[in-house]
């Protein structure tokens, strides 16, 4: 698949929430790699653990959530791989990585900006946190960034509040903030769900352009297969806190291996790059997080389910073609049970 060293390597990540009602295994053994300059799309139905995965990477999971196992290897300062799970979430080192080397573009830019501080104030803050510049310089950089992401008359807009901007401009301002410190990895958590379809396309194009210019890698999260087809190089399909299948975008769309991926693709009318095709519904309901089935998480809804195998042990993610991996007993016998 690649002969480069990855920028980020998530290995067997497990993040659980301990609630009074029981344990929610929001992320339960997720593995994937992100190479420099690559756009990795993570796709999956709502609640499958996409956001928890990226919050774990940023180490901003709040109580009662906790990373209980796994590694998050990040190529820090361009050389050695640093395991982020081993750092204190509040440590100086982790805070220097957050925002400077790994930046977040959130789902709802309206709620992610403080309503009583100007967007300029918040972008400059991100710059001042990580760069040795004066306030005036930070403001200059912020204006430049706003211009770069296509905010008209940024000298004026920098003093606006988030609620004075349109949805599209707000998300652009967020992108400007994320880019402000030249991160090596951008994480976009469903960045286009809160905006209309036309603006969505513009924002996707913008991200594509910026990614090329800055040579940053992107983890792009969405539940929209159309968006994945437009933006991603490589796809990670998640279901109930686990990775079902990974592979290059063309292979995933034209030669899916895992029964879940196949079901997803089958239920959209056209597998073109039409945006707005929501993640389709598949027969059967997603199990409740407290009530996860033993064995393959997909078995209650899988049409190829093999009784006695799929409902007793959990398949691990293994290479199944030259480019794709899948966790499914149709292809291999390796389990994930300790």
């Amino acid at each position: 698949m690649n002969n480069q060293q990855p920028l980020l390597s998530v290995r067997n990540l497990k993040t659980y929430f301990s609630l009074d009602e029981g344990q929610v295994k929001a992320v339960d053994g997720v593995s994937f790699d992100v190479n420099p300059g690559q756009v990795v799309g993570i796709v999956g139905e709502s609640g499958c653990g996409k956001s928890v995965t990226i919050k774990s990477i940023l180490r901003i999971i709040q109580k009662p959530g906790k990373i209980v196992d796994g590694q998050i290897l990040f190529r820090h300062n361009g050389d050695s791989m640093l395991d982020l799970t081993q750092l204190n979430a509040q440590s100086e080192q982790m805070r220097q990585i957050r925002g400077a080397e790994i930046a977040l573009i959130p789902q709802e830019p309206m709620a992610a900006f403080s309503p009583v501080h100007t967007i300029g104030n918040q972008i400059e803050e991100a710059i001042l946190l990580h760069q040795p510049v004066s306030k005036q310089q930070a403001r200059k950089i912020a204006i430049e960034r706003l211009r770069e992401v296509g905010v008209p008359s940024p000298e004026r807009r920098i003093d606006s509040y988030s609620w004075e901007l349109s949805g599209g401009l707000r998300q652009r301002a967020m992108i400007a903030m994320a880019l402000s410190c030249n991160p090596k990895l951008l994480i976009a958590d469903e960045p286009t769900t809160a905006i209309d379809v036309t603006t969505q396309a513009q924002v996707l194009n913008l991200l594509r352009d910026l990614q090329a210019q800055h040579d940053a890698a992107i983890i792009f999260i969405t539940h929209d297969l159309g968006v994945i087809a437009q933006i991603a190089d490589f796809v990670v399909v998640m279901y109930l806190g686990r990775v079902m299948e990974t592979g290059p975008v063309d292979d995933i769309f034209h030669n899916p291996q895992h029964p879940y991926t196949k079901a997803l693709l089958k239920s959209i009318p056209t597998v073109t790059s039409e945006s707005g095709s929501r993640l389709p519904t598949i027969e059967g309901a997603i199990p409740h997080p407290f009530n996860r089935p033993a064995g393959c998480p997909f078995y209650p809804r899988c049409i190829e389910m093999m009784p006695g195998t799929c409902n007793t042990s959990t398949p691990s993610l293994q290479p199944v073609t030259d480019t794709q991996s899948a966790s499914c007993f149709l292809y291999h016998k390796q389990t994930d049970d300790e």
Partner: peptide, 20 residues
């Protein structure tokens, strides 16, 4: 959500709690 965003920027918890 702005709390999460401020954390993701790398602000220290105390500073961000006081500011936002």
């Amino acid at each position: 959500p702005y709390m999460e965003m401020a954390r993701a920027k790398g602000m220290s918890e105390w500073r961000l709690v006081m500011k936002y």
